[in-house]
Design a protein around this nucleic acid. Structure first.
Length: 274
DNA sequence: CAATCGTCCTGCGGGC
DNA sequence: TGCCCGCAGGACGATT
């Protein structure tokens, strides 16, 4: 499931491969993938002939600005992929295809079909409430320890659920919330209001560290994630607790446990994380 | 109001 | 061994 490091890897790929290109043709194979506008025909008409300008990211959303007032928003959810290929490739898998004049194309594929594309007026994002209420970007310079402390103030929920809330911090999901908590020695079910100063500082440092580290490896290929060239990330073999239930803790050797936190699978070391 | 639950979907793997 | 049930989960809407 692509989180910040994976989506950012794709964003960089898009910047390199498709930024500045004009979209000659749009093919929709799965109308369900088009979330806005309600008419897929309108989606096609508004994009064909337009040029892709800036490629941005907000949390786990990709924002492809067109050379008009509209932006193409993409969320990959669990199994969505964006694959850049030469024209004609990947056609049988793709739900939506964007074809460029240089005989290349951008394919949106999505096995489970939770992902989606929105074409919305620039910066309005009216159909996507979360884009308006998105929390701060953890890897930006203004995300300081003081700001993190401020965000936590008055928060009462389980720390792991809080980390995954996109309105709290942008782009953190099930993988990196678990990794950051492990590195900080904090049990995922601890109440956010009960963390002491030292733990908050540790969590801040480790969250940033694990996101940066994963980004440097091109993300983790959990589920279906690959980059724009169809290449897997290489961080999944470095994950310390995610998906490692019943295996040994890399730090103390104890058996890693798996529990449900707010209905989501969560791995942790019962010895290291208190 | 905040927390939790069900929903969408389908490939795969844990468990019998 | 082989098969199949249920797990996997981001975000949202409904519910309590």
């Amino acid at each position: 499931m692509p989180e910040l490091p994976e989506v950012e890897t794709i964003r960089k790929g898009l910047e390199k491969k498709v930024r500045g290109k004009r979209v000659n043709k749009v093919i929709i194979r799965s109308e369900k993938a088009i979330k806005a506008p309600s008419s897929p025909d309108e989606f096609v008409k508004k994009i064909e002939g337009r040029k892709l300008s800036e490629i941005k990211r907000k949390g786990k959303y990709l924002i492809l600005e067109l050379d008009c007032k509209d932006s193409l928003i993409i969320h990959l959810k669990m199994t969505g992929r964006l694959i850049y290929s030469s024209e004609g490739e990947e056609l049988s898998y793709a739900r939506v295809i964007f074809i460029f004049p240089d005989k290349t194309q951008l394919n949106f594929t999505d096995m489970r079909g939770f992902g989606g594309l929105w074409l919305v007026p620039d910066e309005e994002f009216s159909n996507i409430p979360l884009l308006k209420s998105m929390g701060p970007e953890p890897l930006e310079n203004d995300f300081t320890l003081a700001r993190f402390r401020g965000l936590l103030k008055g928060k009462k929920g389980k720390i792991k659920s809080l980390l995954m809330e996109q309105t709290f911090i942008a782009g953190v999901g099930n993988i990196y919330s678990q990794e950051a908590l492990f590195l900080s020695g904090i049990h995922p079910e601890r109440n956010a209001s009960m963390l002491i100063d030292r733990e908050v500082e540790s969590l801040y440092n480790n969250l940033l560290a694990v996101l940066r580290e994963a980004l440097s490896y091109g993300g983790s290929s959990i589920d279906a994630y690959v980059d724009l060239n169809g290449k897997k990330g290489s961080y999944e073999s470095h994950l310390r607790v995610y998906g490692r239930q019943k295996k040994n803790c890399p730090r103390c050797g104890a058996v890693i446990r798996k529990i449900k936190v707010s209905g989501r699978g969560t791995c942790f070391c019962p010895v290291c994380q208190k």
